[in-house]
């Protein structure tokens, strides 16, 4: 009894912190999403369901108009995020394996390299990509000089550039949990599998993959969530043409002055993310107990 009181006292600051700085804003967004937009930003304190109606189809057609474009943008964002997760996984999995086999010093150095991008601003790094990808940029100049292409590749301001940028930003977030899972993988399990007659493919699918699944799921979740809501990458590298839901939210607050609609969009993104998270954690739990 005394121990649990002690524990509660220990946890109180953290709980309070989370309550004030995490749940508080969340609650504000949830409430705002159900209020009437103020003419000049802010909200009017009267219930208004049409913020969601604009998105899902029950707008009255006079004050608000239902437009499928919002769901389209949401779906596109989910698609981009899923593609980003897939590409990050394909890139990071073999590399994490390779790094895990390096001698300790080289391994530390590689981990340091992976975290290096965090030392500089995301915006700066994305502008660097803009310089690389533009028609007169490094990539095209190199390819032209080597004669691999005759005319510059049109990458900048395309959806490919958006996905490329997202993958670039998210790779470290995929790498670290994957590396941790792969590094913790008991090598003798791989040997046991082969010793029992499983070839490399069987060993990978039946032992390595399931054993590293928690890392894969963890990485996928931390890549997916920020990817869905990202608005900087589509702005800088997509030329604001490949609109994602994050851009839409940003626009509601920073140019359309429609906070409740922005809040409603944010709530929907949060709902999707929450559903993803619940699904993933259920999968991870079943993977751990199988």
């Amino acid at each position: 009894m005394r121990q649990s009181t002690f524990l509660a006292a220990l946890l109180a600051p953290a709980t309070l912190f989370l309550g004030v700085f995490f749940l508080g804003p969340l609650l504000i967004i949830a409430v705002f999403s159900l209020l009437t937009p103020g003419l000049y930003g802010g909200v009017e304190w009267s219930f208004y369901h049409q913020n969601y109606g604009r998105i899902f189809g029950w707008a009255d057609g006079i004050m608000e108009i239902y437009e499928p474009v919002y769901l389209q943008i949401l779906l596109r964002s989910l698609g981009f995020a899923a593609l980003t997760v897939g590409l990050c996984l394909v890139i990071c999995y073999p590399v994490a394996f390779w790094v895990a086999r390096l001698p300790p010093r080289a391994r530390l150095f590689c981990l340091f390299l992976v975290t290096l991008p965090f030392f500089s601003s995301l915006i700066v790094r994305l502008y660097a990509w803009l310089l690389i990808l533009k028609p007169s940029g490094l990539l095209n100049q190199t390819l032209l000089a080597t004669g691999l292409i005759q005319t510059p590749l049109e990458i900048l301001y395309t959806q490919s550039a958006v996905v490329l940028g997202l993958v670039y930003v998210m790779v470290p977030f995929m790498f670290l949990p994957l590396y941790s899972a792969i590094d913790n993988l008991d090598r003798s399990m791989v040997e046991a599998s082969m010793d029992l007659g499983a070839n490399r493919v069987q060993t990978f699918t039946k032992v390595v993959l399931p054993q590293t699944l928690p890392g894969i799921i963890g990485g996928a979740v931390i890549v997916f969530i920020p990817s869905v809501g990202n608005f900087i990458v589509p702005d800088v590298l997509g030329g604001a043409k490949g609109l994602m839901v994050g851009n839409l939210v940003e626009q509601q607050f920073l140019s359309a002055r429609n906070w409740p609609f922005g809040a409603a969009l944010a709530m929907i993104v949060m709902g999707v993310v929450l559903a993803t998270l619940l699904y993933a954690s259920a999968r991870a739990r079943s993977a751990a107990h199988a």
Binding site: D186, M189, S193, V207, L213, A287, A290
Partner: peptide
């Protein structure tokens, strides 16, 4: 030595 049983 470590048995290397497949935990999953």
């Amino acid at each position: 030595q470590s048995y290397a049983l497949f935990g999953h």
